[in-house]
């Protein structure tokens, strides 16, 4: 019995090592807080481990975890309301990396602030998380075509408002 648990923990450890940075960054750019992002990633991994089926039955662990993180971030935003923007200097952060990342978070939120939430999310999945349309569609539970059209609308709007320059490609 103990060995089974131990093996599962070893397996989970390697999954954490492989995906933790991407998942943490994903959560951070949704909630804008290191602390909250850490809590969310932690909870998702715990639930992933506690669900006996997931370790053996999930085919694409990365997508499964990203989807879980996306849902957890949405829950968090639902409970805590829209993220309030504050001046980076007012934020008490632990180190330079956190400060730069907070500044980036604020900059990107500002850039996407005029987009409807669903279009903004598609843009983030592509540019912030580096996911392709197929992966984005899987995470948002939508067709690839819907993702593509939201992407086009969003990019048009960003160009019109002069927030981005240059050509964009799907």
């Amino acid at each position: 019995m103990f060995k089974i648990i131990k093996n599962k923990i070893n397996e989970l450890e390697s999954i954490i090592e492989e995906h933790q940075n991407q998942l943490f960054s994903f959560a951070f750019f949704r909630v804008g807080s290191y602390h909250t992002a850490q809590d969310i990633v932690q909870d998702v991994f715990l639930k992933f481990f506690q669900n006996k089926k997931t370790l053996t039955s999930v085919k694409n662990v990365k997508t499964y975890l990203l989807k879980s993180i996306a849902n957890a971030c949405m829950d968090y935003q639902r409970k805590n309301g829209k993220i309030k923007m504050v001046d980076i200097e007012c934020i008490n952060v632990a180190n330079d990396e956190e400060k730069i990342c907070m500044a980036e978070f604020i900059r990107i939120e500002d850039l996407l602030s005029e987009l409807p939430a669903e279009q903004s999310e598609v843009i983030k999945l592509k540019f912030v998380d580096g996911l392709n349309f197929v992966e984005s569609a899987e995470i948002l539970n939508m067709s690839v075509n819907t993702i593509k059209s939201r992407y086009r609308y969003a990019m048009d709007k960003l160009k019109q408002t002069h927030k981005i320059k240059g050509e964009y490609y799907e």
Binding site: Q20, N21, L23, F24, S25, F28, F29, Y34, A37, Q38, V41, E97, E98, I100, C101, E104, F105, I108, L111, L112, I123, F127, V128, L158, K163, I164, K165
Partner: peptide, 11 residues
């Protein structure tokens, strides 16, 4: 413009 210049690493 939309790509973060730095991404946070997991603690």
């Amino acid at each position: 413009e939309i790509t973060p210049k730095m991404k946070p690493s997991a603690p």
